[in-house]
Design a protein around this nucleic acid. Structure first.
Lengths: 249, 249
DNA sequence: ATAAGTCCTATTGTCCGACAATCGGATATC
DNA sequence: GATATCCGATTGTCGGACAATAGGACTTAT
């Protein structure tokens, strides 16, 4: 006969009671992800959800609020909820917001950009067809036609150029992630463009050489010019007197 | 005297009345981001917020729910809300969730991985010091010591290896984004490891060669082996009979 | 017949008040 | 000093209520 151990080593699984409003979220989310609530379909009325889920309307509303941020449901003010599949724009926004909240610095954002963008440029050299290059040229042309003092549009088209490269891969993941990075660096770029007089021409030069390289399917040159482009941005930060350690707002 | 135009071209800015619960969220979020509510500080009681913001508690709660998903506040069940700065883990989770919701395929996730990871490996060759390489070796050793039928840990340590490379850059952005990608491919990797007998040894080989290259600061070889590693994963998908077009759940 | 006005209903946004559960701390007990 | 007990504060949930309005149906005017 075995004696009972002095110290029990039996492990109880932790008891976690999930609040009702979280269950509400999970229930609705599950229905959507399972496809039983198709995209564009209206969700039941809040009152209906109350009776179906057997909770109070306040609880239902709290659950819905949790879904609202993830972009799975769409709401017009005073209108019913509609199921929605978030697009790359939503992903980029939520990612950049999350990164901002977590407290990243300008340097970190630039570093990530410097890591990923040259590789994308190099890969683009072999993967881009005439259509993608045409899109790049269109954005580039818009930039060349922008007056040197129209900072806002210079920033816009510079970002667009980056975005075009990401979009050209026809992969929503790269598109979304690079768009998120662009969002993080956009404010810095705006200051650089405003503070550094020859920023615009340097950007135009880099873009032109990059496009040429892509046309020739010259991956190394494409990578090189993108690297120069990104490095230029960093020098711009210095010239504009921006500390790389400041948190991105 | 000019005649009034037949068709008015005056544009009114759209009137949007923001619901109170959104304002509540914005108010709290602003306080946090401005640093007036420091990390770790307790938020006022819901009742306090009611009086301060002059709205009903239900409204306050709805606003709080909106913040909850972004990880800016932390809540123990039945306990007060505490201000919190989301870490890379939170960013990775929210990003991978957002990508999942937006409906990405296994192919797209693999493609993104194939685009970014080799570049990270190449850059690691010049940027990693002894400490980072030591961490990689530790993970690698854990994998070699894992029995061939312990699929769960094989997947775990394989992911860890990728994560170590991202972490080595000491940049929360790359860490978070790559972790998000890992999350997306993890399920696929699990199936590959379970279905392809020599997956483990192939992974070990790739990792070993990669580490050797990093030690020699040989960027090209590092990139090469990472590329092989990722390509192997793709072949594994084929062997395991996984369609690359399936949506990631 | 199309456009504009009128009414009605359903639904959301917001409020009020209430109560059980429980967390944290103070207090009493051994 | 450690343990048990009590208590106030706070959250989670509930029920009901009401104003505002979006969306139709219906009528009217040009």
């Amino acid at each position: 006969m075995t004696t009972a151990p002095l110290k029990s080593d039996h492990r109880f699984p932790p008891i976690r009671k999930v609040p009702a409003y979280l269950k509400v979220r999970d229930a609705i989310e599950a229905e959507i992800l399972a496809g039983r609530l198709a995209e564009g379909a209206f969700l039941p009325t809040e009152s209906d959800l109350c009776t179906q889920l057997d909770v109070n309307r306040s609880t239902v509303r709290e659950g819905i609020r949790l879904l609202e941020t993830s972009g799975l449901v769409e709401r017009g003010a005073g209108k019913r909820l509609r199921v929605r599949r978030p697009g790359t724009g939503d992903v980029a926004l939520s990612t950049s917001r999350a990164l901002t909240f977590s407290g990243v610095t300008v340097l970190q954002a630039w570093d990530a950009l410097a890591l990923f963008q040259p590789q994308m440029a190099a890969s683009a050299a072999t993967r881009f067809g005439p259509a993608e290059i045409k899109a790049l040229e269109a954005t580039h042309t818009r930039l060349t036609e922008t007056p040197a003092d129209d900072f806002e549009n210079i920033v816009l088209y510079t970002d667009d150029f980056f975005a075009c490269i990401a979009v050209g891969f026809d992969n929503p993941i790269t598109t979304a992630l690079l768009a998120a990075l662009n969002r993080l660096t956009e404010a810095g770029l705006r200051q650089v463009v405003a503070a550094v007089p020859d920023a615009r021409t340097r950007i135009i030069t880099a873009q032109a050489n990059l496009i040429t390289a892509l046309k020739k399917q010259d991956a190394d040159t494409a990578r090189l010019w993108m690297t120069r482009h990104i490095d230029d941005l960093r020098r711009g930060f210095d010239v504009a007197g921006l500390s790389m350690d400041t948190l991105i707002v």
